[in-house]
Design a protein around this nucleic acid. Sequence first.
DNA 1: GAGCGGATTTGATCTGCAGCAACTAAGGTG
DNA 2: CACCTTAGTTGCTGCAGATCAAATCCGCTC
Lengths: 221, 221
Amino acid sequence: MLLRTNTSSIRPVDGHLAALAGERVVCSEFKYRRGTEVFGEGEEAEYVYQIISGAVRTYKLLADGRRQINSFHLPGDMFGLENGATHRFTAEAVIETRVRITRRRGLLETMQSRQSGASSFLGLVTRNLQHAENHMLLLGRKTALERVAAFLLELDERLGHPTILVLPMSRRDIADYLGLTLETVSRACSILRDQKMLRFDGATQRQIVLLDRKGLAEYDA
Amino acid sequence: MLLRTNTSSIRPVDGHLAALAGERVVCSEFKYRRGTEVFGEGEEAEYVYQIISGAVRTYKLLADGRRQINSFHLPGDMFGLENGATHRFTAEAVIETRVRITRRRGLLETMQSRQSGASSFLGLVTRNLQHAENHMLLLGRKTALERVAAFLLELDERLGHPTILVLPMSRRDIADYLGLTLETVSRACSILRDQKMLRFDGATQRQIVLLDRKGLAEYDA
DNA sequence: GAGCGGATTTGATCTGCAGCAACTAAGGTG
DNA sequence: CACCTTAGTTGCTGCAGATCAAATCCGCTC
């Protein structure tokens, strides 16, 4: 829900959302504290979001609490744009996150009347689908080590191969993304560390230096 | 490749493909024998397909042969319509399958110039995405019994709750769709049979009568 | 900077599913 | 119909990863 967050500013900005619609669109900025819900599964899809800073997880739950994270969204990424009227999963801020928000209605109408808008919407959905197809292969057929290696390489790629990979999410989040337990993720990281594929930077376990991307890619079957 | 199949007829027909484009489109009918490839991963996406009869599986492979089936396509379903230029997975006929084929190029151009076409293309991609999201939850977090129950209910639903559910695919196909082994699928079916959730009809193991859809739905967490 | 609570690692044990093997059943062929 | 090939079931054993438990570490707050 929007009201639980403090509005940092409400002003028109342009960015990817505007580019998607092919023209300037009125947006507002919002901030979500770590762990807070951006929207819930089944809620009406009223807004569309683009991350300015921070990270968001989207997930589905089973009745007994088992959780599957579909995807993590990082700065620049858009999420929450549904074709139907309601959200098909829940979105939460992994860490303190600033987002740019715009109303779905205006955006979709604009897109329907403009060529480039419709096709970039389509491109967005297609990229999501492509990611999901790859992730099904990972979840259905890869081993724990292969999954963790693939995850690190995916994040490394999306962040533009930084020297230090700063993970915004916990081991439990990674586990729920990879269909594993947090202990198994932790053990896999330790194995990769022992094999000099990576090293932890500084005190934290959340800052990782990838020492052998090629070796990791071989793990990622 | 198309040339390996025998062309049953080349004539304009209308159907869902035409409806998608918002007008009549020239299509041909093709037939694929059981186990033959419709198109391969990485191939240029030249055609779009709609199943008249039979069934098709689409899948990805890992280097060592592990296979993950994304989805099964049944009569009426369309597949092979990519946004990019190449197919992201392989498609094979599960059993003898007749399809309606049209060139992607003409279809996409038609759609770009027509409102309804673009939005039904979007609807198609969105449905695929939605299916993938649900399947990730299954692959990441459900038990073997839950997966098999979910599979049977999915097929039952898609075939319109027939009295006898005729499975076109083998236990191995089901296993590769559910991220299990064929033995585990077989055992799960036996358990559900012993629990009177289902029964095999006639001689075959491919004809199943669902005796307790509600009970199955409870397994499907 | 001392103390607290959550995050992570690591170890020990357990278990659901995989892997292997043998058997049975079913469809296809001459 | 007899044969053969492929699909499916079932039993047995093994293992990857889950679960349980403990110790350690880290960031946070006061």
